[in-house]
């Protein structure tokens, strides 16, 4: 059973049931996109939950999620459809007798060709059409959620080709004619903003920019997804991640990395964010050697201050506790 959102508040509650915490901004734009029947273009740094949003919407509405992962060199035959030649060949082999029967009735060559032409449709029917994600989403009997992931990785040509699908929800197959959607899929495109998307594509979408979450939002996500982590430690961990994000890193830790880290802390049974725990687990957060070194220098083993100052014993941990 598929259902639709009937208000922005409804979007929020339904998504939170799917363990996705949507901000007012996200809820409003998702609702709007459903109401207008427009694709939603979600942009933002990697790992802030753009793909999760699509999954959340799919399960909240009870629709099937069809995902098209983009990459350089993605073309129509992989995104749209392809004729299944091997199956066609196999069928002709197996149906040879039947074909002989049909064609045998004709007296002349021209007659046989006519007979064959009548049966042509058998071989170019949906039976032999290998549906790729886009066609699948359009022909599905049930309404679906179509996720076109990381569109910025695909070539500019592919973008141009998406335009027909996104504005009219139809696909032209030369042998079959134009196939229109039975149900308009809910389309979500994501982009990591590695290149500028074309104006034409942007024009057809609603735009949602998802940035790194605020401290409160991120804490809520961690509490929801990793309930085993004790609240105090969760607070410290999130605060530390937020601080790392402010520093100039080659790759800032994303929410998904925060969650990985939180899980790691649970697995290690950590009770406090002390120096050894940090040193052991920080590689979960930072994936570049240079970033790791920098974080170790700045946050874990900060250089001693120029003027030696009296230090109390809690200083080491106090740096990471919220206040």
């Amino acid at each position: 059973m598929t259902n639709i959102f009937d208000s922005t508040a409804n979007v929020k509650t339904e998504l939170s049931k799917q363990k996705y915490i949507a901000s007012d901004e996200i809820a409003t734009i998702v609702y709007l996109s459903q109401k207008l029947g427009k694709p939603l273009l979600a942009e933002g740094p990697a790992g802030v939950g753009k793909t999760e949003l699509a999954k959340g919407i799919a399960s909240a509405t009870g629709r099937e999620l069809i995902r098209l992962q983009c990459y350089e060199g993605l073309d129509e035959s992989k995104a749209l459809y392809e004729w299944e030649y091997s199956k066609q060949l196999l069928y002709t082999q197996l149906l040879r007798d039947k074909l002989n029967d049909t064609l045998g009735k004709a007296d002349t060559l021209a007659g046989a060709a006519d007979q064959l032409a009548k049966e042509e449709d058998v071989f170019f029917s949906e039976r032999f059409l290998l549906k790729r994600p886009l066609l699948k989403a359009i022909l599905s009997d049930q309404p679906t959620v179509l996720l076109i992931d990381e569109i910025d990785r695909a070539d500019a040509e592919f973008e141009a080709f998406l335009l027909e699908v996104l504005s009219d929800f139809q696909i032209s197959v030369p042998e079959l004619g134009t196939l229109s959607a039975k149900h308009k899929p809910f389309v979500i495109l994501t982009s990591n903003n590695t290149r500028e998307l074309s104006e034409a594509l942007k024009r057809r979408c609603l735009y949602l920019f998802i940035d790194y979450p605020t401290l409160q939002e991120e804490l809520a996500v961690v509490r929801l997804k990793v309930p085993d982590l004790n609240p105090k430690l969760a607070g410290q961990a999130v605060e530390f991640v937020q601080r790392l994000r402010k520093a100039d890193m080659r790759k800032s830790p994303s929410i998904s990395e925060t969650l990985d880290w939180a899980n790691a802390l649970v697995a290690l049974n950590a009770s406090n964010l002390d120096k050894t725990t940090l040193e052991d687990t920080i590689s979960v957060l930072l994936k570049h050697e240079a970033d790791l070194q920098k974080a170790k220098r700045q946050y874990i083993n900060p250089p001693p201050p120029q003027q030696p100052r009296p230090r109390n014993n809690n200083d080491e941990f106090g740096r990471f506790s919220g206040n």
Partner: peptide, 19 residues
């Protein structure tokens, strides 16, 4: 007001730089 603003922003602004 906030939702009004967002409906304008989502439809008019398609680039982070313009936000």
């Amino acid at each position: 007001r906030e939702q009004f603003k967002l409906s304008l922003r989502a439809t008019l602004i398609k680039d982070v730089k313009d936000i």
